[in-house]
Amino acid sequence: MREITFAQAITEALDEEMARDPSVFIMGEDVGVYGGILGQLAGLFDKYGPDRVRDTPISETAIVGAAVGAAATGMRPVPEIMFCDFLGVPMDEILNQLTKMRYMFGGKAKLPIVIRTLIGAGIGAAAQHSQCLEALFMHIPGIKVVIPSTPYDAKGLLKSAIRDDSPVIYFEHKLLIVMPLKGEVPEEEYTIPLGKADIKREGKDVTVVATALMVHRALAAAAKLQEKGVSIEVIDPRTLVPLDKQTIIDSVKKTGRLVIMTEECKTGSSAAEIAAIVAEEAFDSLDAPIKRVNAPDTPVPFSPVLEKFYMPDEENLIKAVTEIV
């Protein structure tokens, strides 16, 4: 099968959905001629023009607010907020408009919006361009949370997100784009349903749930642990809302052990929620305490030596696994 990059997978998904449905359009900062700050939109401006690939002022409030108005009146906007760290600016539009309107209006409005945004450390972008904020949005009822780890998943999930009639926030880990991560993606069309986890590696001793970049670090750690005779099952939920609890719980029932590895600050993270769900719903299947491997509760530091310390890595995961087997 052909291999494409993470960024190409995103471009292809947008291209196919824009070709398929004239109500789909993109707006954001530097999405036009520039093609997205990391090139995720390369070629789309030339193909679809300035009406459907709209450069905006640096006005995140207006970007998300206008997307809400456009979606409520029949369009399917795909606004981009360049870095998730900038989501503080249009937070009201997400917290009180986008995620509330359908409910407040008694189910009458549809808000098919996909907010695309970059997450993650690893390129020396420091505290205001490197965060992983997925848990903030898990906490707000009314928005689905998508966080792909491979080109195949990135494409299939983005296409489903655009077709979904509910708001979606779609996180792109910048290191997966700049590496660049390549992966097999078929030529023919496919979609991946939201709410279905993927078992990235089967194993029998420990379940590791990981997201985005951490999936790759978990797989690397799993290969090393296999050499020591420890068999790791790596599960990528792919969407945190809706969360495929069953796949995680089924795995824990098989292995009896759970480690959750995400790049977020530990407190109040998606890892915390997954740990709580397993503790609540599958406690009897656990043979050891649940472990979390996360970033520390600090801002993301700049200096490469500090940033490396900040980001969870294979060694952190191997240590956590070793403590419970």
């Binding site: 998300v64 206008a66 809400v68 409520a72 408009q97």
Partner: peptide, 11 residues
């Protein structure tokens, strides 16, 4: 204010 801009953009 931005929501109305979005409805107008949609039109």
């Amino acid at each position: 204010i931005p929501i109305a801009a979005g409805a107008a953009l949609s039109a």
